[in-house]
Simulated assay, not measured.
Amino acid sequence: MASKATNIQDKALGELFYISAGGDIDKNNCAAKQSKDYPYPVYANALVNDGLYGYANYYKIDGNTFTVTGRGDVGHAVARHCMYVPIVRLLVCQPSMDDDVDFFAEQINYARIFIESTGVPQLTAPQLSKIKVKRPSLPEQRKIADLLSAVDDIIAAQEAEVAAWEKRKKGVMQKLFSQEVRFKADDGSDFPDWEEKTLGDICMYERQRSEGANFVGTENMLKDFGGVTFDNSNADGSGTLYHPGDTLMSNIRPYLKKAWLADRKGTCSTDVLVFHPTSVEPGYLYWLIASDAFVRYVMSAAKGSKMPRGDKKHIMEMPLLLPNKDEQRKIDDCLSFLNDVIIKAKNELAKWQELKKGLLQQMFV
């Protein structure tokens, strides 16, 4: 672990950097795609793709700087080593002395600037200029920035690995549920044809009310089938009962894909649907509900614009083709294996993210 920086000066950011806002975009000299005529990137207040908005045939900033988002998700810093055009409320920090912009961008991100606002949060240049930062010597700035950059590279590679496995799993699910790919029985023979069913033929949604621990509300369900957290402060309240092997799905904004295969007994809010398998393997039922096709079907009859809810009767009428239980188990085993790989990759990513957090604490606290 890196040692804490020495000979550090405490400074206001405005003492070290000229800070200005991006301003208006010249739409007549911009394009959506980069070309030899429009070579210079245009950056705006956004977190996706480092705020890339488009390209221009002119530039406003030349040299090593860093930008800070000044509207919406404020306080996100990105070091930029190119000629570019900042627009609207994106704040540009240009060094007035010989300082490393990568080091200070990391420090601003670590500061996690928060602006209280009843509307859209905004961070102004005068506000940013008052933020206190630590300024070690330039050689130490560069060493710290190089170390953090190396860790960032590993984190980015691990994020790409997680995304690649997620994409593989999605592709495998599509091929399996469309029967483009079929498993063979253990003796090498073909499995029987899949049978036409409805969701209500193979499971029921639980209506039984009870009191108990392991309470799950929609806010406790993690998106993209990431699992759940438990709120046992509601343990004395009444909720819908669920058991191990049941699949729970948020019935509010189902397009966020909030679902969980229960591994314990507990209760949940009435906005969480509990699917109890009756003539289907529990794991297969979970993957069926985790499929894009299921989410599209639910949304086709969801009610409400801001907080759409699935229609329970419509959901249970969902038509499907069901393999026999032996093939269900093979499908479950395959997808569960892929899911385990993804969980392992995510855990490795979390370790590197935690390492960086520890490095930042030592360097900037």
Rank of each mutant, 00 (worst) to 15 (best):
M1R: 07
S3D: 12
K4E: 11
K4L: 06
A5G: 05
Q9G: 01
D10H: 14
G14R: 05
G14E: 08
L16W: 10
S20V: 06
A21W: 00
G23T: 03
D26P: 03
N28V: 00
N29F: 04
A32T: 15
A32P: 00
K33D: 14
Q34P: 01
Y43S: 02
Y43A: 01
A44P: 02
N45D: 15
A46H: 12
V48H: 11
V48T: 15
V48C: 04
G54P: 13
K60V: 15
K60F: 08
K60H: 10
D62M: 08
G63R: 06
G63S: 08
T67H: 02
V68P: 02
V68S: 04
T69C: 02
T69F: 05
G70E: 05
R71F: 09
D73E: 14
V74C: 14
R89V: 13
L90E: 07
L90G: 09
V92I: 14
P95F: 04
M97N: 08
D99A: 08
D102A: 09
Q107M: 01
Y110M: 00
T124A: 04
A125W: 03
K130C: 07
S149A: 10
A150H: 15
V151H: 07
D152H: 09
A157H: 15
A160D: 15
V162D: 03
A163G: 07
K167E: 14
K167M: 09
M173V: 09
L176A: 05
S178K: 09
V181K: 10
R182G: 04
F183N: 10
F183E: 08
K184Y: 13
A185H: 14
D190E: 12
P192F: 12
D193R: 09
E195N: 06
T198S: 10
L199Y: 03
G200K: 01
I202F: 00
M204N: 09
E206F: 00
Q208V: 12
S210C: 11
G212Y: 05
N214I: 02
T218W: 01
M221Y: 06
F225E: 04
T229C: 05
S233P: 02
N234R: 13
A235Y: 05
G237E: 15
G237M: 14
S238Q: 15
Y242C: 05
Y242V: 07
P244R: 08
G245M: 05
L248I: 06
P254G: 03
A259C: 13
L261A: 10
A262D: 07
A262K: 06
R264C: 11
K265T: 12
G266N: 00
T267A: 11
C268V: 07
S269E: 01
T270S: 10
H276E: 01
V280C: 10
P282V: 00
Y284I: 03
L288W: 11
I289P: 02
A293W: 08
F294Y: 13
F294D: 02
M299Q: 10
K303F: 02
M307H: 12
K312G: 08
K313G: 15
K313H: 13
I315F: 05
I315N: 03
P319D: 11
P319C: 09
L320H: 07
L322R: 06
P323K: 04
D332R: 08
L338I: 15
A345F: 10
K351E: 15
W352A: 07
Q353E: 14
L355H: 10
L355W: 05
K356T: 07
K357M: 11
G358V: 11
G358T: 12
L360Y: 04
F364Q: 01
